[in-house]
Write a protein that binds this DNA or RNA. Sequence first.
DNA 1: ATTCGCAATAATATATGATATTTTTTATTT
DNA 2: AAATAAAAAATATCATATATTATTGCGAAT
Lengths: 220, 220
Amino acid sequence: MSQTAPTVGSSTYERIKHDIIFGELAPGSKLKLDGLRDRYSASVSTLRETLNRLASEGFVQAAEQRGFFVRPVSADDLTEIAELRILLECSALETSIACGDADWEGNLVAAHHKLHLIEQKMLAGDTSQKELWKRYDGEFHQALIQACNSQNLLSLHTTIFDKYLRYQMLVFTSRGQEAVEEHKTMFDAALARDPVRAKAALETHIRLGLEHTLTAMAAM
Amino acid sequence: MSQTAPTVGSSTYERIKHDIIFGELAPGSKLKLDGLRDRYSASVSTLRETLNRLASEGFVQAAEQRGFFVRPVSADDLTEIAELRILLECSALETSIACGDADWEGNLVAAHHKLHLIEQKMLAGDTSQKELWKRYDGEFHQALIQACNSQNLLSLHTTIFDKYLRYQMLVFTSRGQEAVEEHKTMFDAALARDPVRAKAALETHIRLGLEHTLTAMAAM
DNA sequence: ATTCGCAATAATATATGATATTTTTTATTT
DNA sequence: AAATAAAAAATATCATATATTATTGCGAAT
């Protein structure tokens, strides 16, 4: 898929962002330029470009003259992220359901199918593909809101979703059958063009996920 | 105030961002590194850091291997920005009204007072301080939502607000007395802890502003 | 003895100019 | 007019120099 990035800068960007989201770079840890230079084989200048990008997106904390840190995590921050996800995603979902055409439906059916397949594997105990699972989860949620007619909203949502994802990966415990059913409800409601039911299911989905993750975090 | 930035990078960031928002760098125009080097007296690497930051915030468009451009403007984009502002700012306003303490009130009173003073000057025909006027306008809107208990929401709002501001500066025609009264209504409703009235006034305020700006853009 | 303050030193971040690639423009040929 | 090749311009990347911050070690004061 997107293995070969045309430029050193964009590929290090992808890699560092990935490593932050998936916890390979621990929350709060110092990002020393020299260390990163070895790890990602890119020059300091290129790395600084990357870190500046990640800093404005909020994955990295930039401290003037003192360097860069992986954005720390906290229960409060997670709660804020989840509330924002509800706000943005529910709004986008409503418009999307109102405006979605045949392409939107087709894409949504495909996304849900792929998600459902891998969810069954996860339920069966195969946790070897958790990264792929989360990708399909993300693609399903994105497919739902794709027809919202706002590039600005979609790109804001993508960033928020990735931040939420980092917390999920941090604790990594699945909610199992429950979440699967919530996805199904959203999917059905969206195809049935029922924004009220779809939004309610989405809000519940996120709120339960939030509580689940908060509980898991407290036990860490 | 913030004239002396400790670092070349952050000061060029502020300057370029300012120049984009206030139209001194025209929408869609190419940002050539050499040209910027002369204009802002900073090296290409430093400039690239800055442009990457501005690109993830959406003020600059980065085209891989082909350089940077000032983000173009369009009626659709403005509409998206305005809708997002309504979504984020109304939500934040509601929470802020519910949670605001004495400090919040004090700060709000001060912000409204300053805004009102300069609005009177504007109405009297003195357009020499439009930049200061817009700063007070921004500070007032920020003061309203300051107590929303979400740093993430506040920082998202700041970015959206600046994008909206660019469009306002692009056409620069004031709505006059009308907007002044809307500010007053929001202010009174917020202090009276009436979220419904405050949100309605805010939404109207933004929607009328949007229409006003769209009309002015169409005539350009 | 332990803490505090103050150098000197080491480590790190910031900023620059030089080089390698790529894209765009111009010129030439079919 | 279209396609190709050479030249010019611009971007992407790097290695290095400068400035700042953090650390260490030493001596004075409590």
